[in-house]
Amino acid sequence: MLALALVLTLTPGAGSSPGWRPGLVVLRTALLTAAPFWVFLLVLHDVTTTVAIGLRITTMVASFVWLVAALEPARLVEAMVAAGWSASLAYLFGATLSAVPVLKARAQRIVEAQRARGLSARGGIAARLRALRALALPLVLSALHEVDERALALETRGLVPGIRRTPLAPPPDTPVERAARWALLLACLFALFRRVM
């Protein structure tokens, strides 16, 4: 599974632009995210167990990072609505996937604003910690503030529980894709059954 995840992350066009670079960025993000888990595992377990659990965690992280990089949240929402899911639930999934790039862009703006006011993230650990605090506080506060305004905006734009949204341009869902989905679900159930039995 890890091999599959890594292949997918390195697939040209895994990100939003063609070529290998987006895939490498995704892979680097996945490995950096999984790295702390490896450290903790190594502290707690022997090498064999660390490798066994670490590979599973890395597979999960790589799969999720690849999903976030490759899947347009808007397409997911359209596909879920077309498949009969609740629009609110579909939006919840889509908004969760789109939260990472949104927060990243906002963090970048905050860093630029802090730099313009003379705060440098370079230097020793103390300087970096000061810069981190100057980033984290406005990032968290602005995200919390935006949640309120976004709730009002979505409500006024008709995204309320119980609506029957009209799918505008649902992505095509071929019989092969449907069969692949069922096959994956059955494979998961089979693996679970084998594990339990």
């Binding site: 629009a87 734009r157 008709g158 995204l159 309320v160 609506i163 029957r164 949204r165 009209t166 799918p167 505008l168």
Partner: peptide, 10 residues
């Protein structure tokens, strides 16, 4: 986005 949420025909 809003009109689609109202369930109007396309």
């Amino acid at each position: 986005f809003g009109p689609a949420n109202l369930g109007w025909p396309t």
